[in-house]
Design a protein around this nucleic acid. Structure first.
Lengths: 200, 200
DNA sequence: TCCAACGTACTACAGCCGTAGTGCGACGGG
DNA sequence: CCCGTCGCACTACGGCTGTAGTACGTTGGA
């Protein structure tokens, strides 16, 4: 086999095009025909690969998880015992990487997350991915000495998620913060969580 | 005049129904006809009140801003000089209020925010509301002694936004955190920002 | 060599969507 | 009292959408 299984390359092309359309035109812009045209495929190709709309969405979600894992790389974080500073660096870098250069993926993710609200089959994917992510982060903050790791992980995720949303669709007006700013944010977040009492 | 101007009650009904549909069925579920049916209005009413889809969306956004301002009440925050504790309380309460009991409004907001990405006319509304919000929060953290108020306000907004998103569509699996948890989060966030150095 | 299976291309169709046009009835000013 | 104005109900229509059906070429195994 050249790639994986015959038709896998085409499936990936269709899925990537679907993600691009989602980002560019939203949920109403994602149609079988639009994918065909945008991908330069003959009419009917997408409809044939993913018969129903549900199938098309699942294809897109699977591909999204695949591509996001590649930019996040949370599994190769430094050991917390090797010094908190390097972990802060790594987290800030990961957050900044997620912020820049893949606005398309981020937008598509929010579109699909909203849709998953109403489609249990999609829901499952997001819940699974979210749970895995949360566990990894929980381990990390535990290693840093957090006294309430689950809550802290959740709070960190909320912050990062909100930051990404702001950058692509929110209050930032497309002014993405630099690495330094993100690093300062992460550092303060962790400082607050890891014990320094209230300074007032 | 009984309400404001003739037809205002009907306009509000249509807008509220549009928001409900957005939350329940997403952007693809919001159509002129669906609004008519859901609101129990005769066919064509919505189409007549908001001729184009763009007009319908603008109606919904205007109504959204109106209703959200009512639940947030950021303008009646206590003076920071009256003690940081009471401000933390107020912020936590506001965040928790936004989290509970109006999932519908929150979902609709994210749907519209995503759509605003592609519609400059909607964009304007969100940008304006976001800027106002950011300024108020900047003033608050300035009063608390922040050394980088703009960045801190942005970070707080990101956190709150992400928290709301997680609650309605994300990693929480519909498990909304209680007031106590939200308060602890806010307290730690502010503690980290307001100077306690890194404890590692 | 032949045939079964599969990916692919193309067509068909019923249903829904956004938008425009039009007639009607009520309310208010002159 | 009369007429203009405005909101409202209803209909029409061109276009697009999701999905099913089917015919074709190729590839791999018996």
């Amino acid at each position: 086999m050249s790639v994986r299984t015959p038709g896998a390359a085409r499936a990936d092309l269709v899925a990537d095009t679907a993600l691009a359309l989602l980002a560019e035109r939203g949920m109403r812009g994602l149609t079988h025909r639009a994918v065909d045209e945008t991908a330069g495929l003959p009419q009917g190709s997408t409809s044939n690969l993913a018969r129903t709309r549900q199938a098309l969405l699942e294809l897109a979600v699977r591909r999204l998880a695949e591509r996001e894992a590649r930019v996040l790389r949370l599994h190769e974080m430094p050991d917390p015992r090797a010094g908190a500073d390097s972990l802060v660096d790594a987290l800030a870098l990961a957050a900044h990487r997620a912020l820049t250069g893949n606005r398309e993926l981020t937008l598509a993710r929010y579109e699909l997350a909203l849709e998953a609200t109403r489609r249990p089959e999609l829901r499952a994917y997001f819940d699974a991915a979210g749970a895995r992510f949360r566990e990894q982060l929980t381990t990390l903050v535990t290693g840093l000495g957090s006294t309430d790791p689950e809550r802290h992980a959740l709070s960190l995720i909320a912050w990062a998620d909100g930051l990404m949303f702001s950058c692509v669709a929110g209050s930032f007006s497309a002014r993405v913060p630099g690495v330094a700013e993100v690093r300062a944010d992460v550092e303060e977040l962790l400082a607050g969580m890891l014990g320094a009492g209230k300074p007032w």
